[in-house]
């Protein structure tokens, strides 16, 4: 417990090094990770968490940089988590979102962390939620999460962030991709970035039309904000809308959303724990290899194999 509690005590005081170390623990899934999460859990829940999603090239990182500047002007401290994809072939990753935010790196009120998905689907890393908690507990007022943005299905952000901003740019052929990826349904606020382009207004009309077709969740009507991240135009309006959304949530939907988020997380944790438990047990007994051989020789199908494995573990625990 010593390492974990030392890190947690120190990060609760806002120590940047401890924050960084804690994130590495949860990312690597070390033996300290669960202890750290458990210790800081009571200290979380204060920060406002905002997800920023949208395909690559629309200007998410530049927009985040401008948002952080604006938030800092208002005296808020900010944590940023920037997620990039892990290569399925090499297992390596190139984390390049930070480049656009490097001018903020020496500001003590800002903490930026780049994170690879490590093959977690859904546009986030497995450790993203725990990282949000760490930044939250360390005293950051606002936490911004930038999803992968490779145009894949990135809907997992709603499991973490009560406010989701979907960023689009005119002429990037996003419209179709966006609908495919189901991103229209997760946005609380839509941003048309690169609004200095001629086709920006057309994009706004298209998005509005698409939103009217979709199903509405609650009473909130997602606003569409035009920004030009390179100059910062529209960023304060975006912040206003983010504030309004928070206000709206606090009037009732917040607890509902929070419940949903916590439930998702609990489900995820149960899945993970049980899977780990079963897999380790099987491996220990050499039964895992056995099942794999059976699958390969087509003696059994995967579902029945899982059933068999589960029964084996359950009966054994009963016997105990």
């Amino acid at each position: 417990m010593a390492v974990a509690s030392q890190i947690v005590t120190s990060l609760l005081q806002g120590n940047q090094r401890a924050v960084a170390k804690a994130i590495t623990h949860v990312e690597d899934g070390t033996s300290e990770a669960e202890k750290i999460t458990a210790l800081l859990y009571p200290h979380t829940g204060k920060a406002q968490v905002i997800g920023i999603t949208g395909s690559g090239g629309v200007g998410k990182s530049t927009l985040i940089e401008k948002l952080v500047r604006e938030l800092r002007r208002g005296g808020k401290t900010v944590g940023v988590i920037a997620v990039d994809p892990t290569s399925p072939f090499s297992g390596g990753a190139f984390l390049g979102d930070r480049i656009r935010m490097q001018d903020l790196s020496t500001d003590e009120g800002v903490f930026i962390r780049s994170m690879a998905t490590r093959n977690n689907p859904g546009g986030l890393a497995r450790a993203t939620m725990d990282t949000v908690r760490i930044l939250d507990a360390s005293g950051k007022d606002i936490i911004l999460i930038e999803t992968v943005g490779a145009g894949q299905s990135e809907v997992d952000i709603i499991k973490i962030a009560p406010t989701v901003v979907v960023v689009l740019a005119p002429g990037f052929g996003d419209a179709i991709q966006t609908i495919k990826a189901g991103i229209m349904e997760i946005g609380d606020i839509f941003v048309i970035n690169k609004a200095d382009r001629e086709s920006a207004d057309k994009a706004v009309i298209n998005i509005r039309a698409m939103l009217q077709l979709g199903t509405q969740r609650g009473k909130w009507i997602p606003p569409i904000v035009k920004t030009t991240a390179t100059t910062g135009a529209g960023v304060s309006e975006l912040l206003e809308k983010i504030g309004e959304h928070r206000e709206y949530l606090s009037k009732g939907e917040a607890s509902q959303r929070q419940r949903r988020i916590v439930r998702e997380e609990l489900e995820e944790a149960i899945k993970r724990k049980t899977a780990e438990h079963i897999l380790t047990a099987l491996q220990k007994e050499g039964e895992l290899d056995n099942l794999i051989s059976k699958l390969l020789s087509k003696e059994i199908d995967p579902m029945s194999a899982a059933e068999e494995a589960l029964n084996r573990i359950l009966t054994r625990s009963k016997r105990r």
Binding site: L95, G96, R98, Q102, T106
Partner: peptide, 22 residues
């Protein structure tokens, strides 16, 4: 996992990045 800072970084920016990114 490679983090790249881009060009023209001050020593302070580099070291702060080392720290935050651990």
């Amino acid at each position: 996992e490679v983090i790249y800072t881009g060009l023209r970084q001050t020593p302070e920016q580099i070291v702060e990045t080392v720290l935050q990114e651990d």
